[in-house]
């Protein structure tokens, strides 16, 4: 039996296929933007192609993410909070706290020893300090998203960015540039500001080890290091942090298919 999880996020869609033993046999990330039905369709198609399977081979599909309600073909829909928790717990059973920074929001989740969500909080009012924020900052500084993390580790001056509001931070960054500050130093300041905001959110639910970080922003080593410094511990980062929600959705799909 093969089942699928599809995570229709705000900037990307991901899919994961798992077999009846819960092994991930294929996964995909499609950058399309905007919680679209088409994005989740395409993510599923890419994963199916990778596994050399077709839609007919799937016994159950769970959709998650902000576009879960419009995801076609889903047999049921589960929130991204539950799916990320399930996915992170399946990859790291020692995980008790999860930080997920995606395209438009930040989530912090506590799970118990059975992988069930015990508490969570979200910064979902605006995209401050999220993937979208990093895109705008990268654009303002003329660097690519991929190089932001590494360059920030090569900082010389420890700068402070006072806001992670996308609008305010952009003007602050421009102002720092006009003062002749180095791009690497500004990047470091941006990542520290994200870390402050994330740790502030974590404080509300408390931190228990092990801490896993998921979502696209977990690919930014600068943000990861800044959060680790603030927390004083190492984060566990999955090989592909963006597909954790889809993997969790697939595990839930498996459970549903088996109890059907």
């Amino acid at each position: 039996m093969i089942v699928a999880g599809v995570d229709a996020g705000s900037l990307s869609a991901e899919a994961a296929l798992v077999d009846d033993k819960g092994n991930v046999i294929a996964q995909s990330v499609v950058l399309m933007g905007g919680c679209s039905a088409k994005a989740s369709e395409e993510a599923l198609e890419v994963a199916l192609r990778e596994a050399n399977l077709s839609l007919d081979d799937l016994s159950y599909i769970v959709a998650t993410g902000c576009g879960r309600e419009i995801s076609p073909r889903a047999n049921s829909r589960v929130t991204e909070i539950t799916c990320i928790a399930r996915g992170a717990f399946s990859l790291y059973p020692s995980c008790r706290t999860i930080i997920d920074i995606g395209g438009q929001d930040t989530k912090v989740i506590r799970v118990n020893e059975r992988g069930i969500v015990s508490e969570f909080d979200m910064n979902d009012k605006c995209a401050a300090g999220t993937g979208r924020f990093l895109e705008v900052m990268a654009n303002a500084l003329g660097v690519s998203l991929e190089e932001m993390g590494q360059r920030s580790l090569e900082f010389e001056e420890d700068l402070q960015i006072s806001s992670v509001c996308t609008v305010f931070a952009e003007s602050e960054v421009i102002s720092l540039q006009s003062q002749g500050k180095a791009v690497n130093d500004i990047l470091r300041g941006i990542h520290k500001a994200i870390a402050d905001r994330t740790v502030g959110l974590l404080e509300r639910i408390g931190v228990e080890k092990d801490v896993v970080m998921t979502g696209g922003v977990a690919k930014n080593i600068g943000v990861v290091r800044a959060i680790e410094e603030k927390l004083g511990l190492s984060l566990l980062i999955p090989e592909e942090p963006q597909t954790v929600g889809a993997i969790g959705a697939a595990h839930i799909a498996l459970q549903k298919a088996q109890t059907q």
Partner: peptide, 22 residues
């Protein structure tokens, strides 16, 4: 707002998860 619904939904999922798998 959709976010409010997602929060409530996630909480309710955790209650069902605890009840049905606890």
């Amino acid at each position: 707002k959709a976010q409010t619904k997602t929060r409530l939904e996630a909480f309710v999922e955790s209650l069902y998860g605890e009840r049905d798998n606890g």
